[in-house]
Amino acid sequence: MTMTPPDDVDLDRVWTNVAAEVWRRHPGRLERTATRFLRSPGLARALLTTPSLFLPWLIATTVFLAVGALAQASAGQPLVWLIAPAVAAVGVAYAYGPGIDPAWELSCSCAVSYRMVLLTRAVAVFAVNAVLGLAASAATVGTTASAHAAQLTFAWLIPMTAVCALALAVAVATRSASTGAAAGVAAWIIVVLGWSAASSPPGATGVSLTAAVTDPGLYLPYLAVAACCAAIVGYATRPQRGMQ
C-alpha cells in the first residue's frame, strides 16, 4: 500500500522543522547562565568563544601559576604576585581582535556590537585570571615570602588592572594582540625591575622584587594608568572609526 501525503502539506516546511529538531544545539549550563546574566544570547555565545578562556589556555594559566606558587613556597620568591599580572595581560590582549577572531570582520557587521563583545570578553578574562591568581596566592599563605600575605594577595590586583588595561589598549590601538601582550609584559618587567632597583637601599646586597607590588605609593599611578588606558580603548573603538 502506498501512502501519499495530503495535497495541502508543505513537505519542505515539515522537513525543515524535523531538521531543526535534529540539528538543535542544546546550550550548556555555563552558556545559559551567561545568557541570563548578560541578557543577550549572542553576547553569551561570543563570550564562550573567547580564545583565552578555552580549556587549553586555562590549563596553561593554572599550570603557570601553580609552578609560581610552588616556587614561592619552596624558595621564598614571590613569583605568583609577579607572574599573575603578566599572565592576565596576555589573556586580555588575546580576548578579541582582528587577528584573534577568525570571523572578526563579519562579527563587526552584526547587531551585537564589537565594543560590547570586547568589553565582555576582557572583563571575563580579567575575572578568571584574578580568581586563579587569588587561589595561587592563597596556596602560599604561611610561607616565608608571604609574611604580608593579606596585603600582597590583594595588592597585586591593582598593578594587574593597570597591566591588563595597558595590554588591551595597545592591542586595540595597533589591532595586534601580540603587540598588546608584549607591551603589557614588557611594561610589567620594567616596572618590577626598575622599582626594585630604585627602592633598594644603597649598598644593599639583594633587591626586593615585591617593591612594585608592596609600595602603596604606586597604587595611585597604577590606577591612573588603568584609567588612561581605558580611555584609549574607548577612543580607539569609538563607532566613528569604523562604525563598529
Partner: peptide, 15 residues
C-alpha cells in the same frame, strides 16, 4: 552563532 549576533529572536533561530 551569527543568527544570535544578529539578534534574531532566540525562539526563531533553530528553524
Amino acid at each position: 552563532y551569527f543568527a544570535l549576533l544578529k539578534e534574531m529572536p532566540p525562539h526563531l533561530v533553530t528553524k
